[in-house]
């Protein structure tokens, strides 16, 4: 898995690429942890190039939701392919995590 990060205005954008499984989820976990500690105003995880996600990857997002809320940090996922979105939907994670079909919509939601 590859992770790249950029700032667009007040938004911290994480681009996840490849497979996010029990072996690689620690990388994303560290990046999320650091972003929360820095008190970023908004974090968007762009999943456009994410090929695969298991519960270990989704668990990283779940484990930070309380801290994100507590610090009033906007958090959203965007641009999942059909098979990754299918896993997200099976667990009903849309109840707890904001999701947008593309990055522009996610960025608009921050404003």
């Amino acid at each position: 898995m590859n992770l790249t990060a950029e700032h667009q205005a007040n938004v911290y954008l994480l681009h996840v690429e490849g497979d996010l499984d029990a072996s690689s989820s620690i990388i994303l976990d560290n990046a999320m942890q650091e972003a929360i500690q820095r008190n970023e105003k908004a974090i968007i995880v762009n999943c456009e190039k994410l090929n695969y996600i298991s519960s270990a990857g989704l668990g990283v997002f779940m484990s930070h939701l309380s801290d994100l809320e507590e610090k009033n940090i906007f958090f959203a996922l965007c641009s999942m392919n059909e098979k990754v979105k299918n896993v997200f939907d099976i667990l009903g994670l849309g109840e707890l995590i904001k999701y947008y079909p593309n990055q522009d919509l996610a960025l608009q939601a921050v404003k």
Binding site: S25, D29, S54, S55, A56, L58, G59, V60, M62, S63, H64, L65, S66, D67, V87, I90, L91, G92, L93, E95, L96
Partner: peptide, 24 residues
Amino acid sequence: DANLQDLKKQKRKGGMGLTLVKNI
């Protein structure tokens, strides 16, 4: 099965895998 609100409260990373298996 995983209770999402509980997992969020407990800041847990695990707990969803077998729920996925049973659902699929």
